[in-house]
Simulated assay, not measured.
Amino acid sequence: MNLTEKVHSLPLSPGVYLMKDSLGNIIYVGKAKRLRKRVQSYFYNNKGHSPKVVQLVRQIRDLEYRLTDTEFEAFMLECQLIKEMKPMYNRKMKNPLAYSYISVREDKGRRQFEVSYDPGPPGASLHFGPYTSRSTVERALQGIKESQRILCSSPNARGSLCLNHSLGLCLGMCGGGAALEAYDVIMDRIIALLDGRDTGILSDLEQRMAEAAERFDFEAAVKYRDYAGAVQALLQKEKVSRFTGENNSIAVLEPMAGDRIKLILIKGAQIIYRATLHSQQMDRAQLQAAVYAAILEQFAAAAAAGSAGDGAGTINRHTIDEAQIIYSYLKSSSGSYLIIPPEWLGSPPEPLLEGAVDKLVAGCLEQQEDAE
């Protein structure tokens, strides 16, 4: 079967596709909710493709695929295969592998932000990240500093006002005096923003965008839109980083076609267990008992494996990518999920767990009925 025939014969199912070159090397791994439509998009209506995608398509000579039951599993399998195989075009289409951090450092009695690839030793400074796009970090900080008028062009100067002060971009902390107190208040607000405690600065950027649009200053509106978008991306990445570090125990139930229900158990950013249940073969009490038993058994095994020191807690790019998939899935899930507090998995287990599992099963069965 040639490549064209293979593409036309692909199923309209979730899964992962692996592109190969003339030597049979896997050069790209991708995921899809509907495999055939996604793979066909590489070869048809390709005028909007980036140069890297055009170059990739020129080298494709064969492909294989792996089916999954759900789109979520396809996303997770893609991450796993990229980590294992390191295909050439997945690396080309990624940002550089180094992470970026925002550090708050003390310099001559004044706190300042610094973007770097190394946050320094633990406790050396307050820092946020890791972030996978340095350009997004720098654009977000530029917008924050500009909107809060702390974009000083002479940050190390004392006693003389910088050029940006005359342009309205610096409130004058370079001149000392009362402006330094205002500067400290602003720094506290920015730190609260990056920490997710106060999004007032983001609202300010969005307000500036709206005001610029109202006065038909579209150049300024686009600038503030881009600044706001970069800040939102930073806040999202910070949430994902915290989510990754929490090493949550998560149970997901996702209804599938027919009477099938997919049970997925996640520890941190890893799927540790999956099983297919059939709602027509089991009543609600039996489903609840099966899910409850799997939760206790599998998370106990995961805890035992973690205590052996296997390095699973290391945060790297793939861990962050996997955590992003899980986080986004939970926030917009078509299934039901339960984040299980650690104390519920003790011995004996917390009685609240049984009630929570019952609600989880009931929610999934209700979604299954609505889909019919």
Results as ranks from 00 to 15, higher is better:
residue 4 T to W: 10
residue 4 T to S: 12
residue 23 L to S: 13
residue 24 G to Y: 11
residue 24 G to I: 06
residue 29 V to P: 00
residue 29 V to S: 05
residue 39 V to T: 01
residue 40 Q to S: 11
residue 48 G to L: 11
residue 48 G to V: 07
residue 51 P to L: 07
residue 52 K to D: 10
residue 55 Q to C: 03
residue 61 R to G: 01
residue 62 D to C: 09
residue 62 D to E: 07
residue 69 D to L: 15
residue 72 F to Y: 15
residue 75 F to H: 13
residue 78 E to F: 08
residue 80 Q to T: 13
residue 80 Q to S: 13
residue 81 L to N: 03
residue 84 E to Y: 05
residue 86 K to E: 09
residue 87 P to V: 02
residue 94 K to S: 14
residue 95 N to H: 08
residue 95 N to R: 14
residue 97 L to H: 05
residue 99 Y to L: 12
residue 105 R to K: 14
residue 107 D to W: 10
residue 114 E to C: 10
residue 119 P to Q: 06
residue 123 G to K: 10
residue 125 S to Y: 08
residue 126 L to S: 00
residue 133 S to Q: 08
residue 133 S to W: 05
residue 133 S to R: 14
residue 136 T to P: 00
residue 163 L to N: 09
residue 165 H to T: 04
residue 168 G to I: 08
residue 175 G to K: 07
residue 176 G to Q: 08
residue 183 Y to K: 10
residue 186 I to C: 03
residue 189 R to L: 10
residue 196 G to N: 09
residue 197 R to I: 01
residue 208 R to C: 01
residue 210 A to L: 13
residue 212 A to K: 07
residue 234 L to S: 02
residue 236 Q to E: 09
residue 241 S to I: 02
residue 243 F to S: 03
residue 243 F to H: 11
residue 258 G to M: 11
residue 258 G to L: 11
residue 259 D to T: 13
residue 260 R to S: 12
residue 261 I to W: 07
residue 263 L to K: 02
residue 270 Q to F: 08
residue 271 I to N: 06
residue 275 A to N: 15
residue 281 Q to V: 01
residue 282 M to F: 12
residue 288 Q to W: 02
residue 291 V to H: 01
residue 294 A to P: 01
residue 296 L to A: 03
residue 298 Q to I: 02
residue 300 A to R: 15
residue 304 A to Y: 03
residue 305 A to R: 14
residue 310 D to E: 12
residue 318 H to K: 03
residue 319 T to A: 15
residue 321 D to S: 14
residue 331 K to V: 00
residue 333 S to K: 03
residue 336 S to Y: 05
residue 337 Y to N: 12
residue 339 I to L: 08
residue 340 I to L: 11
residue 347 S to I: 02
residue 349 P to H: 08
residue 350 E to C: 13
residue 355 G to P: 00
residue 357 V to R: 03
residue 357 V to D: 04
residue 358 D to V: 01
residue 362 A to M: 04
residue 366 E to N: 09
residue 366 E to T: 11
